[in-house]
């Protein structure tokens, strides 16, 4: 059998390793060698391109030529132009609403499966994921069919006599985007919350009950704080990608529901202003990252304060 680390035993200790070489076992080198192809791929195809996006965002486009002198003009434009401001703020606001709605709707389901799923937990989880095995584009389009003026929802509501005129506030605006995204990201919120609720030691809940806590206090003081890691994970998993969603705002958002990804695409496409598009993309990434980090820190502080 191979020994993990021959270094540090016997005469080998006399040999002093040069400073720049960290002490590492043979296994360490094997590990590094093994991980280097995927790591190199990520460096080459992700880190380098992102760096280039960053550089490009500080260059300027003159029709077909690229002016490589550094300037913050694109960022100034991104920050001052009303349209970009509106789109950026709207993207963040819609994303925040989607995240809150998705996580709030998901929590009871995760709670239900974790505590009452019994032997059928796996079946419940499968039931929740099946609808998402449809093409994303087609799923989003089907929401258009449901929410439309002559859509399935209006048709059914009129048919059942609940309303007389079709509802118009549910398509081609931010509401439609929120509904559709809250649907699209449901399983990504349910799964992490489910995992963290399942991990809760039920004897803690019994202890709380024995000490006289009612169901509500038990939930607020035991279950909820202990499931917070899942809620935080769900929040980030939903929030980060939805800010950059392209398909849903384009198909369902109308003009009042367009988001920043749509503008980024326009800059790279029709507008032929890749530097400005890059500046918008970098700004979006920075905003998303800072909101996410703030959220995590605040949450950590909150939990610590609760003890």
């Amino acid at each position: 059998m191979r020994q993990e680390s021959p270094v540090g035993k016997g005469p080998a200790t006399r040999w002093r390793k040069p400073r720049f070489m960290p002490s590492m076992s043979a296994g360490g080198w094997h590990g590094l060698a093994l991980i280097s192809p995927p790591f190199a791929y990520s460096l080459l195809m992700l880190a380098a391109p992102l760096l280039l996006v960053f550089l490009l965002s500080m260059w300027t486009q003159n029709y077909l030529d690229l002016d490589r002198t550094f300037t913050m003009a694109n960022y100034r434009e991104a920050a001052s132009e009303k349209l970009y401001q509106v789109l950026m703020i709207r993207s963040v606001v819609i994303s925040v609403i989607v995240t809150i709605v998705t996580v709030l709707l998901a929590y009871p389901i995760a709670y239900y499966i974790a505590f009452y799923g019994g032997k059928r937990k796996a079946m419940w989880l499968l039931l929740i994921t099946i609808p998402f095995w449809t093409s994303y584009l087609i799923r989003v389009f089907l929401w258009k069919v449901i929410l439309g003026y002559n859509g399935v929802l209006n048709g059914s509501l009129i048919g059942m006599g609940f309303i007389e005129e079709p509802l118009t506030f549910i398509l081609y605006n931010a509401n439609a985007v929120v509904i559709t995204l809250a649907h699209a990201w449901a399983p990504f919120a349910i799964l992490p919350i489910f995992v963290s609720i399942s991990r809760i030691d039920t004897s803690l809940l019994e202890a709380a009950r024995d000490l006289g806590d009612g169901p509500l206090r038990r939930f607020l003081r035991v279950t909820l704080p202990l499931s917070m890691p899942g809620v935080v994970a769900a929040t980030l998993i939903v929030f980060i990608p939805t800010v950059g969603d392209y398909v849903t705002p384009r198909l369902l958002g109308g003009t009042d529901g367009l988001m920043i990804a749509n503008m980024i695409q326009i800059q790279f496409g029709k507008a032929n202003n890749a530097p400005l598009g890059s500046a918008l993309a970098v700004s979006a990434m920075v905003i998303v990252a800072s909101i996410s980090i703030t959220f995590v820190l605040l949450n950590r502080r909150f939990l610590r304060a609760k003890g």
Partner: peptide
């Protein structure tokens, strides 16, 4: 955790 549009843009 990266919006896919960022990967596309990059």
């Amino acid at each position: 955790v990266l919006p896919e549009i960022i990967v596309g843009v990059a």
